[in-house]
Design a binder for these strands. Sequence first.
DNA 1: CCACCGCCTGATACCGGTATCAGAGTCGTG
DNA 2: CACGACTCTGATACCGGTATCAGGCGGTGG
Lengths: 364, 364
Amino acid sequence: MPTERGQAGPTISEVAAEARVGRATAARTLGGYGYVSPELRARVLAAAEKLGYRANALARSMSTGVSHTLGVIVADIGNPFFAGLLRGVSDTSRARGFDVIVLSTYENLREEVAAANVLIDKRVDGVIVASAALQRDQVAHLKAALDRGIPVVLVDRAVAALDLDAVVIDNRDAARQAVEMLIAAGHRRIGFVWGPPVGEPPATRRELLAAASRNLWTDGERLRGYLDALDDAHIPFDPELVMVGPKTEERVVHEVGRMLALPDRVTAVFCTETDGMTGSLRALRAAGLSYPHDVSLVGFDDSAWAAVMDPPLTMIEQPVHQLGAKAAEVLLDILAGAEPARDMHTLRSRLIRRSSVAPPPALP
Amino acid sequence: MPTERGQAGPTISEVAAEARVGRATAARTLGGYGYVSPELRARVLAAAEKLGYRANALARSMSTGVSHTLGVIVADIGNPFFAGLLRGVSDTSRARGFDVIVLSTYENLREEVAAANVLIDKRVDGVIVASAALQRDQVAHLKAALDRGIPVVLVDRAVAALDLDAVVIDNRDAARQAVEMLIAAGHRRIGFVWGPPVGEPPATRRELLAAASRNLWTDGERLRGYLDALDDAHIPFDPELVMVGPKTEERVVHEVGRMLALPDRVTAVFCTETDGMTGSLRALRAAGLSYPHDVSLVGFDDSAWAAVMDPPLTMIEQPVHQLGAKAAEVLLDILAGAEPARDMHTLRSRLIRRSSVAPPPALP
DNA sequence: CCACCGCCTGATACCGGTATCAGAGTCGTG
DNA sequence: CACGACTCTGATACCGGTATCAGGCGGTGG
């Protein structure tokens, strides 16, 4: 007769009873440890099969202290960048027998703290986080995990205040290359979309950098790369050419529109996110301008769309899947006993040259 | 002095000891149940604060039997459609105090079964699944969850063999509307990208439908919608105009190229996925043709890119976030005690008319 | 023939919570 | 003054696994 509990599946005790053996013997066979004679083993296996036994992972974690689960904290699952990264994490985790819990923070530090607590409470074995934290006083939630013996690996974004393994790309260098290409084509008025989300446009370069380092790490790095390229070419920095304010596509349309309406208007735009690119494209259309003839364009995060645009867009491709896979690998290795290297693992991005960059038009 | 265990955070017993009260009293205060005098409560709270106590969610789940966790099974987290859907699920779950575990199957039924087992083992309270299962003999893994008292809600894809709540859009109707629009513009040679992934192109309409119903539910529905529109307009079905084979962008380029090279070539293409659209665009360019002049285009799954293409693309927008949010809502309501309605919850999709549809060119 | 040894099994403590319940302590009342 | 009622606390069983360990049983050697 089948189990009489109806709900919630049979337990090891019920399997043991069905097989007429002790609980410990059933546990040994089903758990795959200790010794059990072939005869009893067969009886237990048959009973388990018959009752449809599945081990309770919660109970197992309780007594072993490991959950075979990784926690991942990202800004937004809905963003294709993080979606791809997550796929990398989950592919390699699954392959090594680990499940994944994903939490989104929407770039909100308060949410990130809550997420870290959820993962601590659920006793995940390790955490991968694309953190919005930068300053020393913003990392208590990650320290809390570390203190409890939960290893943490950073991904996409380094956190200077924390000496941890981080898997990233060289954002600064990628941005510099892109802007250098624009400069090489003859551009001197190059817009930067998007900068830090501050209220007032920073008047000086120093103020801008300060604002940037109060915000997202990747954004700050990309801004530095933009500045590097300008400096190398002795092009003076113009605060009017960097977008500030909320990071929405609407805002981009407005800001790029403004840069396009300047007396000494922008002849190229560098976008650090895909929304920046679509917004710029809309602003261009609204101004009745076309690329690459009137304005050249380069952006971050390649996609199938960028390649089918007419003309196709020059883009920086990030190794999204690899970023996630490597982060998982580093974390899993630590869990397997490796000493944390506390290194910066820098993956290669790639500038894909297509047809959205041309020399600037002869302006009146 | 702080806890001496170093690892793994303090337990309720340690907090109780620190506060010099019984374990049960500490548990009552921290768990927020039963009665505790204000004085002891304050002592316990202070001790917990001091030691940095966090409840072990695993232990709690063990004894209460609920985990406050939902499991979600989707085809691919990397796909923007599912990423958006997941965001919907996770937003409403979090708001109601539930965490989410996500598993990807890559349309592989074997992976789907493994995913269901993981969720059962982890004792999730409920499951949301975009299932690749269709036939009666493919749903054992979902039945297993149901048998254990874990409610299941289907999303994006209905499963006829299972009488469950399902949150979907009317794929058939959406496809019909799109194709009707093409027909209204004068088209009679309309390509369908993509059809079922079979080896041999089905020679007859019956064979095609049979192949479709052996595969993904959404694909079958969209194909039926295409056929509906053709029938209504008395346009004969031509098997040469439906793509079969593996669902990759490469394959689309090849197949659409073929349809474009036909003596009586295609003058419009209807795409059921975003990869179908980007692939078609590449095929068009390769053939030296442009839209909407030479070929009209309509596709599924709107995105920011579709709006900034030149000309902008006419697209069917799915309420991705809402799909996920509604599925979570239905599931959470069942968990809160509501009787499962076992209904089909059909959400509205929207045909966004932009500029990729025009009358067919006068062909020689 | 008994002692000893190794093989195998089942009893049991434990993980960290929840939930029940007995009983200590306080107070009011007959 | 004693007793019942009520308030509050802590002991304890339990959830479903893991892991340790005592002891039963059969075989071998003295």
